[in-house]
Design a protein around this nucleic acid. Structure first.
Lengths: 207, 207
DNA sequence: CGATACCAAGCAAGCGCTTGGTTTGTAAAC
DNA sequence: GTTTACAAACCAAGCGCTTGCTTGGTATCG
């Protein structure tokens, strides 16, 4: 399963919006605006203008402004969980699985879904508590993928720290790349992935 | 120099506000509110109420609401740069210096100045561009402390990744602890520091 | 014909900030 | 040791503007 077919499958199941549809384009523009200006500083008039409609017409698609933020987050998590699962399944060893997860998350954060991922990190508090609880449930599935792989590496004696601590450190470290990493800066995503693995003392296994 | 005498010295030089003064108390409450609700969702009425004055009276102390945010950030960086410098100076080896830096930053993020540090991370975009440029200058001094230590460790062959990448990863990882670490959760700051160093493959040096 | 997608206009509430005037603290002048 | 002077700190009121959202009506299309 490549990235495109995963996306298409989710669209068919109505779990994420087609980027071509009106709703999908709105969510994409919303993610960009929320990342650039922040949720609060983005007005419904900004959102409407970005897709070329009147501000009032937004409320035909979403009940409230917050529902737009929630949709951005929910769909992003759904897509990325599927991508991570696929990355883990494809890798043979646990060391490879970890590298694949790191690589996949870096791609989520710095690639096409980067705007939405940044929103997920930085606009968390703008969600109502009810929405936070819902999104949190989705994220638990996602996190378990990481913990399983890190737990196996710990058992193998390759990892010297606690899996749940390592995962949280990696969450921060990888999310933060959105604030400084630029793909045109002489450092590819593969380079970056290698640096992360090297930093953890997990260089290529002895042969 | 202990933490308290460093703080006092900065107060005397007028680089940070005395926490007892009206201005100092306002900045402290502002940091707490900005972290809890976000800068945009915190109103000048909230800020004024937190220190027991009328909203209009705020503008006797600060020209704009944004000036309050800027002051929170500037004073926090000044204090933490001094604390970091002191931590580095006190440690004998470079490995110890790194551990001291990690420990000091974890303390900044999760200790007394934690609210302000969280603001520094999550409310960056709420600063005007002019203020951002000013704060960025201050932060460069701070960052150089890290790069020097990491560079030395790299030369020693203890560190397998690029210093500037490692620093940015650590920035993300350590900042992120503010979202999950709770001192009463059975994990002390010393434990956490050790986990970070262990995760980097820098366990206690061979004797 | 009926549902879907939209527009034009505007309302009520909340926002940052200003204004004119009063209290409070301090210190020199007498 | 009281009086005078004055700035700093604060209040009460509210202005002008923007905000999220509503309303009533009109195209568009299967």
């Amino acid at each position: 399963m490549n990235q495109d077919s995963i996306l298409r499958s989710l669209i068919n199941d109505n779990l994420v919006s087609d980027p071509v549809s009106a709703r999908g384009r709105l969510l994409h523009e919303a993610a960009r605006l929320f990342r650039d200006k922040g949720y609060e500083r983005t007005t419904v008039r900004d959102l409407a203008a970005a897709v070329g409609i009147q501000s009032g017409s937004l409320f035909h698609h979403f009940r409230t402004k917050e529902a737009i933020l929630k949709a951005v987050m929910v769909e992003t998590i759904r897509l990325n969980t599927a991508l991570m699962q696929s990355a883990v399944d494809a890798a043979p060893t646990y060391r490879d699985k970890l590298q694949a997860l790191v690589r996949a998350e870096l791609e989520s954060i710095n690639g096409q879904t980067g705007e939405a991922m940044a929103v997920l990190v930085f606009e968390w508090r703008s969600l109502s508590e009810a929405s936070q609880a819902y999104v949190l449930e989705l994220r638990d599935i996602y996190e378990q993928l990481w913990l399983d792989v890190l737990g196996a590496l710990r058992s193998e004696g390759v990892l010297a720290a606690e899996p749940f601590v390592v995962r949280r450190m990696l969450t921060g470290a990888l999310s933060w790349t959105v604030t400084w990493y630029r793909p045109d800066g002489g450092l590819t995503l593969d380079d970056l992935t290698e640096q992360v693995v090297a930093m953890m003392g997990l260089t290529a296994p002895a042969t």
